[in-house]
């Protein structure tokens, strides 16, 4: 009898666990996807609509509310690592002054019929939206960790330089389903622009490290 109660308890606990782990939308997920896709005007240009496509990483992250089991996370990280491309000249450190500008720019890439960005609008990394960088900029967000004194703390070995480049190019190579965009993968930033942001993080003269 006691065993039965214990077993019942275990099953209930397991059920509760699986209910918590239910993917968003539950049994309506597929229908919800169709409904979402049906929400848009037919005259949206094709390349706008392509922004609704999901690669394996996006799809899996959504299913697990950005918290996948480690095994699945590792698989995604491997997949994303393989996507990283480097500048042709192989140099990973660019001009920190250019990087400073890119870190502050949050415009660009808005589409739609109501308030799209004008053609040719500069597209930046918008790093300050989520990270503290140079001390003098107080309007920084806190979704990501502080990167103030990035190289002062970590040193400027080749490993750290490569890590910074890779992380900006494809953040999911290190942490699957992180909030950070994959700037290189989506060609939001060019490899050259990424080297400028790496310089902003690494250069001893950059306000990230100097002040």
């Amino acid at each position: 009898m006691k065993l039965k109660i214990a077993l019942f308890g275990l099953c209930t606990a397991a059920l509760a666990g699986s209910a918590l782990a239910e993917a968003p939308g539950g049994k309506y997920a597929r229908e919800a996807e169709q409904m979402f896709r049906a929400s848009f005007r037919a005259d949206n240009p094709k390349y706008w609509m392509s922004r609704l496509e999901q690669d394996e990483t996006m799809k899996t992250c959504g299913e697990y509310r950005d918290n996948p089991p480690r095994k699945i996370g590792e698989k995604l990280e491997k997949l994303n690592k393989a996507s990283i491309r480097y500048p042709v000249d192989g140099k990973l450190i660019g001009d920190w002054k250019e990087g400073e500008k890119l870190a502050a720019v949050g415009t660009g890439g808005h589409i739609g019929f109501i308030q799209p960005d004008p053609a040719g609008r500069v597209r930046g990394g918008n790093c300050y939206a989520c990270h503290e960088l140079a001390k003098k900029e107080v309007a920084y967000g806190t979704i990501g960790p502080s990167l103030n004194h990035f190289a002062k703390i970590r040193g400027n070995s080749d490993e750290i330089i490569k890590y910074a480049y890779d992380k900006i190019y494809n953040s999911n190579a290190f942490t699957a389903c992180t909030n950070m965009p994959r700037f290189g993968l989506h060609s939001w930033l060019t490899p050259e622009q990424i080297t400028h942001i790496v310089a902003f993080l690494m250069d001893p003269e950059s306000p990230v490290n100097k002040d």
């Binding site: 229908e31 919800a32 890439g109 979704i143």
Partner: peptide, 29 residues
């Protein structure tokens, strides 16, 4: 279905509603 859309990631910044609105005490800028 709303919950599904809330967590759905796509686009050139990998966004979902949850990226900015799924945790406590954060700031954008």
């Amino acid at each position: 279905m709303g919950e599904y859309i809330f967590y759905r990631r796509s686009g050139p910044q990998d966004f979902s509603c949850s990226i900015c609105h799924g945790q406590e005490g954060k700031r954008i800028r």
